[in-house]
């Protein structure tokens, strides 16, 4: 019942976007979808927002505006995009995008998916690599301020995992520490596996 209601709400929102934005439009989501894709499934270098955890989106918007998330593309795009956003608008954007159903990117290397899954679920104890599952959930669905990883694009996941090791977004403990223990091949495998994790199998 709850599901039907939220689906109805989404359909209503989608329909309201079909036409040109009215003067009374309170949430200018087109400022976001210009880069993140018209249905917020991600596009080019911009990650999927659809189905991302509400609290995570809000926290990231705050991190961009406070220049805590300082990855190169964040500086280039998101610092400016969030410079004039009110905390209320950040919450509204987070609520909206988290309610959209995500589609898996499916763009990783299928040959690496099994290795990635093993690292995701169990870690590599001998090499002090933590299991991702304990925080991000058995289906990579995320929770609260911890992001959903399932179905994000291979390129985005790989870039984020690499950039922690390069010193960007250092305040996002414990991620910098975790990623430093990963080899380039293991990062590739994790990003590949996660790109195939579908929303349909979740929740």
């Amino acid at each position: 019942m709850k599901r039907i209601k939220s689906k109805t709400a989404i359909v209503a929102i989608v329909f309201s976007l079909a036409g040109p934005l009215s003067a009374g439009e309170s949430l200018p989501i087109r400022n976001c979808t210009w880069c993140h894709g018209s249905s917020a499934q991600g596009f080019s270098t911009a990650p999927r927002l659809a189905g991302q955890r509400e609290k995570y989106i809000e926290n990231q918007l705050l991190s961009f505006s406070a220049h805590i998330r300082d990855n190169p593309l964040s500086q280039q795009y998101m610092w400016g995009a969030t410079a004039n956003l009110s905390p209320e608008a950040m919450r509204d954007f987070a609520a909206y995008f988290s309610s959209l159903p995500p589609k898996a990117a499916n763009d990783g290397d299928p040959q690496l998916a099994a290795q990635g899954r093993a690292i995701y679920e169990l870690g590599i104890a001998e090499a002090n690599v933590a299991a991702c599952l304990v925080c991000h959930g058995p289906n990579a669905e995320g929770i609260r301020e911890i992001p959903r990883l399932g179905g994000l694009s291979h390129a985005y996941l790989k870039r984020r995992l690499e950039q922690w090791g390069q010193g960007f977004h250092a305040a996002a403990e414990p991620m910098p520490q975790i990623t430093r223990a990963l080899s380039p091949n293991e990062i590739d495998a994790l990003a590949s596996y996660l790109s195939f994790v579908a929303y349909e199998s979740l929740e």
Binding site: N128, A130, V134, E173, P174, Q177, A181
Partner: peptide, 11 residues
């Protein structure tokens, strides 16, 4: 190994 434990169990 301590860093590894603290990744999940807190710094």
């Amino acid at each position: 190994k301590l860093d590894y434990c603290k990744t999940c169990h807190g710094l």
